[in-house]
C-alpha cells in the first residue's frame, strides 16, 4: 500500500508541484523538501495546459529521492499505449506507486500547437491499463512479470454542466480502477457540501481542490482561463481589499483547508504559479489546525 493510500484513512493533504521548464530542478526541489512529512502526496503535472516541461515521471523520481511521496499525473495527450505502458514499468522500477490519470488539454491550447494530438487511450482506458499492468497483464492480454502495484486515481470537475454526465464518467472511472479523485479548486464551503452530497456513497476518496489566490491578476486569470464557474465575489473582495493580497490569499486558503477537516477525505493544494508559497501555506494550515 502506498503512503498516500495509507494517508486516506485520516485527513489527507496533497499538493501540486510542476516539473521545471528546464533541466535544473533544484529550485522546485527546494520547495518540495519543505513539504516532506507535511503533505501526504505531491502531484507532478504532465505538460499541464499543453505546455512543454520536464518529464513528469523523471521529476517524480527526483522528488522520491528527497523523500517526497509522488503522485504521477499521466495525460493521454502525448503518448500512445506503447509509450504509456513502458513509462508505467519505468514508474514501477522507480518505486512510484501513485498514478493520476487525465485526458490532457488539447495541444492547440499550449505552447506547441502543431504537436500531433495522440489520445490513443482515454482516461478510463488508461486507468484500466494501469491496473491491469499492476496485476501483470499488458494491454495486449499477455502476461508481464515483476510488476508492482499502482494506486490509481483521476480528476473530477464539480462545476461541469451537465453534472449528471460528469457523475456518470466518475462512476466509469471508479469501475476502471480510480480510488481517489482530485477536484478543481473550490472557493466556498456551501459548494463543497453540495458536491460531496452528490458523490456520497461512491467508492473513492474525494480530495477537495484548494488554490490560494495571490491577487487580482490571478483571480482574473483563473476566471478567464481555468475555471468554469467564477470565484465568488465575496472571496474576490476579501483578497483585493487586503493590504497584503498574497498573505490574505494564503490565510483564506489555510482557513478553507482547516474547514474541510470534518467534511472531506482531504484536500489537494494547487498553488498554480506560486509554488514558493506552498511552505508558508502549510505553516498557516498547521498553525490554524
Amino acid at each position: 500500500m502506498s503512503k498516500f493510500q495509507e494517508s486516506l484513512s485520516r485527513f489527507c493533504i496533497t499538493a501540486e508541484i510542476p516539473p521545471p521548464k528546464g533541466a535544473d530542478a533544484s529550485s522546485y526541489l527546494r520547495i518540495a523538501e519543505k513539504t516532506v512529512g507535511r503533505v501526504d502526496g505531491v502531484n507532478v503535472t504532465d505538460n499541464q495546459r499543453g505546455m512543454m516541461r520536464m518529464s513528469s515521471l523523471v521529476f517524480c523520481k527526483l522528488l522520491k529521492d528527497i523523500g517526497c511521496e509522488p503522485i504521477w499525473q499521466v495525460a493521454c495527450r502525448d503518448r500512445n499505449r506503447l509509450a504509456l505502458q513502458s513509462d508505467m514499468l519505468g514508474a514501477m522500477a522507480f518505486g512510484i506507486e501513485n498514478l493520476c490519470a487525465m485526458t490532457g488539454d488539447f495541444p492547440t491550447m499550449g505552447d506547441n500547437p502543431d504537436a500531433r494530438p495522440v489520445y490513443d487511450l482515454d482516461s478510463m482506458q488508461l486507468l484500466k491499463a494501469a491496473n491491469d499492468l499492476a496485476r501483470g497483464v499488458a494491454m495486449n492480454g499477455k502476461p508481464v512479470k515483476n510488476v508492482r502495484p499502482f494506486f490509481t486515481g483521476a480528476v473530477i470537475n464539480p462545476f461541469y454542466e451537465p453534472f449528471e454526465l460528469e457523475l456518470l464518467k466518475t462512476k466509469k472511472k471508479i469501475a476502471a480502477g480510480a480510488r481517489f479523485f482530485q477536484t478543481q479548486p473550490f472557493f466556498d464551503i456551501p459548494s463543497v457540501e453540495k458536491f460531496l452530497g452528490t458523490v456520497k456513497g461512491l467508492d473513492a476518496a474525494f480530495l477537495i481542490g484548494v488554490t490560494p489566490l495571490k491577487g487580482e491578476k490571478m483571480i482574473t486569470f483563473l476566471n478567464e482561463k481555468v475555471l468554469t464557474t467564477p470565484i465568488p465575489a465575496e472571496v474576490t473582495a476579501r483578497i483585493t481589499g487586503a493590504a497584503d493580497q498574497t498573505r490574505e490569499g494564503l490565510l483564506a486558503a489555510a482557513e478553507f483547508v482547516n474547514a474541510m477537516r470534518n467534511r472531506a477525505h482531504g484536500v489537494h493544494l494547487m498553488p498554480i504559479g506560486q509554488e514558493e508559497n506552498l511552505p508558508p501555506l502549510l505553516d498557516m494550515i498547521e498553525a490554524g489546525k
Binding site: F106, Y119, D122, S123, N157, T228
Partner: peptide, 14 residues
C-alpha cells in the same frame, strides 16, 4: 478533437 470513446473530457466551456 481528442477522439474520446468513454465520455467527454472536463474541458467543455458552457
Amino acid at each position: 478533437p481528442k477522439g474520446l470513446l468513454n465520455g467527454p473530457c472536463g474541458g467543455a466551456v458552457r
